[in-house]
Design a protein around this nucleic acid. Structure first.
Length: 702
DNA sequence: CTACCTCGAGCTCA
DNA sequence: CTCGAGGTAG
């Protein structure tokens, strides 16, 4: 116990503040006015300022925002953050229900936890021994951004857990800005002439991406937690990571620490001091779920936060485990989205864009319209067939929908409103840029410009592709600059980039000494690259990142690729007759060969790829067996990865088996492996092994 | 497809 | 202050 009276006072203040937070945010019971809370916080901040030796990093005083960061760092999630499958109508939900109910096949109706789907951003918070250690955004699901400094300013996020919490906890939730905070924020912004946010979601996202947490602290964000990532009690895992044990064992542990019910687990999460949405309910079957959807839909406007649908999750954790995962989403949950928002606007014009491959894409220019939380002014019309299907004319009133929250779609024309001022969309007969003829392959919808590189649009686009991040990765050379360089005839093909001089650049707008130097440096840096990137950068039709990688790894050498016959190419994974034809044609083209030669003359180089020898196959002569359902990889992918390391992947366990990888609900193979005393590892462990060998692969740099 | 944040650098005007 | 580039999110 602390003996210093000031320390005692500080600790008691913290305790009082935490208690108030808990009452307010978790129990939803504001027993004291805000002013009381503010008074306590001010008192604490003052005391800590005068006695800095007692400051801790989970003191509630941290909520006003500490030091600004200089950059975001990355955090690997303890277990991946998955996404959810969507349905947009009850029919699709019914199909989902039938699918899983037949899969579980136990005859009784399935219980679901129903939760409003908050429109914010997903975060993961990690607590060790009850203290908030860090918080991260979703990122790509595996690695997210460290936003701990901003998360700490959210008053509803406990810095310390209470109750019977796990020693290690990774809890997932949604950060959002309540409607009221959003309105207040924008009202202030208007008064101060600051910029206003277009919707609460973007305001929340923008606030979390702030380097200076003091700004975040002023934006009243909130959070509801909805899932457990990892929970460890003592040394034993009781979270969702259990893999290598039979059901009985899992059940035993669950009984001990965590409920076998998602709904009950949410209550447990709540009992640890983490706020849960109070609209969450347990429903007994599919019909009750749809009733819930209706009920929440009816009071959607009245809710203090924005939601975009309902999430149904199978309540039984054991049933969840039986169902497992598809790709990046669980099979046992689904998001039922509210109908996509639609608005009527006017089609002002249609532009025809020419892409890198000559594809002509009609782009609708719309009278800007606010739909689904953003201003939409452009939408793709895809191709001629789509224009015909919609029977759309310039000047028409059209319905724009933003479904799945991303790409706007022109749904139909409001024919009733069509007037005499409309004019038909004339699909061009010639390329709008270079006037070359267009061609269309039978049974394909896309028209293409036949101009090739004499078409300035194709030329520019192919250069933009060449310099892009996944290709040659020339930093600082963006779309706009490429266009300017092309317009000024400073470059005509991708090789010309490498003979740009400072004198060339410096006359351009917004391009002075410093920028020119930086660009030349970046160009120089890009010369060192890899074979796969060069192949990708060339922009051969149908050859994307993956195919380029396959070509590089299989044929090992540029000359091999350039001289391959159709037959050679078709032997490679994922390359069929069409792709092979494109590759052969590309390397037959004199012009292309000339550009490639120039590139090499200008000093583009890449490390030779060594054919794999035995020393690079750490699992050579080993036999591995996969069993149970894997959650992160498809079975076939796991097999390929192991084979790449030299292992033989067999279907059954025998005394010759070296290692068994057991996924969720592994069965007899696992039992047999245990009987024979064969090494058994989890999916995560396998991934770690694969990852570790990746790193020791002999380096082929320089 | 849009919105947002951050950064470096150029431009502009005092 | 403004712009473009780069990155993130849904």
């Amino acid at each position: 116990m602390p003996s210093n009276p000031i320390e005692i006072q500080i600790k008691s203040l913290r305790k009082k503040i935490e208690e108030l937070n808990y009452q307010y945010y978790v129990l939803d019971d504001p027993s004291y006015p805000d002013s009381h809370y503010d008074k306590l916080i001010n008192e604490l901040v003052l005391l800590e300022q005068n006695n800095p030796e007692f400051i801790t990093n989970n003191s509630p005083s941290q909520r006003v925002g500490g030091q600004a960061l200089s950059s975001f760092s990355r955090i690997t999630h303890l277990t991946p953050m998955l996404s959810l499958d969507n349905v947009f109508d009850s029919d699709s939900f019914n199909k989902f229900y039938e699918r899983i109910s037949s899969k579980l096949g136990n005859g009784h109706s399935l219980k679901f936890t129903c939760e409003p789907k908050l429109d914010g951003l997903a975060i993961s918070c990690v607590y060790k021994n009850g203290n908030l250690i860090h918080a991260a955004t979703r990122g790509d699901g595996r690695i997210g951004e460290d936003v701990t400094h901003n998360i700490k300013t959210i008053s509803s996020i406990p810095l310390k857990l209470r109750g019977d919490f796990p020693d290690l906890l990774d809890v997932r939730g949604e950060v959002f800005m309540p409607k009221a905070s959003f309105e207040k924020l924008n009202k202030n912004a208007i008064e101060n002439g600051d910029k206003v946010f277009v919707n609460p979601r973007n305001a929340a996202a923008g606030s979390l991406r702030q380097l200076d947490p003091k700004i975040t602290a002023q934006r009243k964000l909130s959070v509801y937690f909805y899932a457990l990532g990892v929970a460890e009690f003592g040394n034993e895992q009781a979270g969702s990571n259990i893999a290598q044990e039979g059901y009985e064992n899992i059940q035993e542990k669950l009984d001990h620490y965590l409920a076998n019910s998602h709904f009950e687990r949410l209550k447990q999460i709540q009992s640890w001091g983490l706020p849960i949405c109070n609209e969450v309910e347990l429903r007994s079957d599919d019909i009750a779920c749809l009733e819930y959807f209706k009920e929440i839909g009816d009071k959607r406007e009245q809710l203090p936060y924005e939601i975009d649908g309902i999430v149904y999750k199978i309540d039984s954790i054991l049933e969840q485990k039986k169902l497992g995962f598809v790709a990046k989403a669980p099979r046992w949950a689904i998001a039922h989205k509210f109908p996509a928002q639609e608005e009527i606007t006017i089609l002002k014009d249609v532009d025809f864009q020419v892409g890198r491959t000559g594809a002509i894409t009609p782009v609708a220019r719309l009278e800007p319209v606010f739909v689904g939380g953003v201003m939409v002014s452009n939408a793709t019309l895809h191709n001629k067939d789509e224009i015909d299907r919609l029977d759309i004319r310039v000047g028409d009133y059209i319905v724009v929908r933003r479904a799945g929250d991303v790409i706007p779609k022109i749904v139909n024309v409001v024919l009733d409103k069509r007037n005499n001022n409309t004019s038909p969309i004339i699909f061009p007969k010639k390329c709008p840029i270079c006037q070359s003829d267009l061609e269309k392959e039978t049974d394909q919808a896309i028209y293409r410009c036949t101009g090739g590189l004499i078409c300035s649009a194709q030329k520019t686009q192919s250069i933009i592709h060449f310099v892009s991040r996944k290709a040659m990765n020339i930093d600082g050379l963006g779309d706009k600059l490429v266009e300017v360089l092309c317009e000024n005839n400073l470059i005509d093909n991708v090789a010309d980039i490498y003979q740009l001089s400072k004198e060339n650049l410096i006359d351009l707008e917004r391009m002075a000494e410093k920028s020119a130097n930086n660009l030349l440096l970046a160009i120089e840096k890009s010369k060192q690259t890899s074979l796969a990137k060069v192949i990708y950068a060339l922009g051969i039709r149908e050859v994307g990142e993956v195919t380029a990688m396959n070509l590089a790894n299989n044929l090992l050498d540029f000359k091999n690729i350039a001289n391959s016959s159709l037959e050679d190419l078709e032997k490679i994974e994922d390359i069929g007759p069409i792709v092979a034809k494109h590759i052969v044609a590309f390397f037959k083209n004199k012009n292309n060969l000339q550009v490639i030669n120039s590139l090499i003359d200008f000093g583009i180089y890449w490390p030779k790829i060594q054919p794999k020898d035995e020393s690079e196959l750490p699992l050579l002569n080993q036999t591995w067996v996969l069993t149970g359902s894997l959650s992160q990889l498809k079975r076939a992918d796991a097999k390929t990865l192991l084979q790449l390391l030299g292992a033989k992947v067999s279907g059954s366990v025998s005394k010759n088996t070296n290692c068994v990888v057991a996924g969720e609900s592994a069965g007899s193979k696992l039992t047999k492996a245990n009987d024979l005393g064969i090494k058994v590892i989890t999916e995560d462990e396998m991934l770690m092994i694969i990852e570790s060998f990746k790193n020791v692969k002999p380096s082929v740099e320089q």
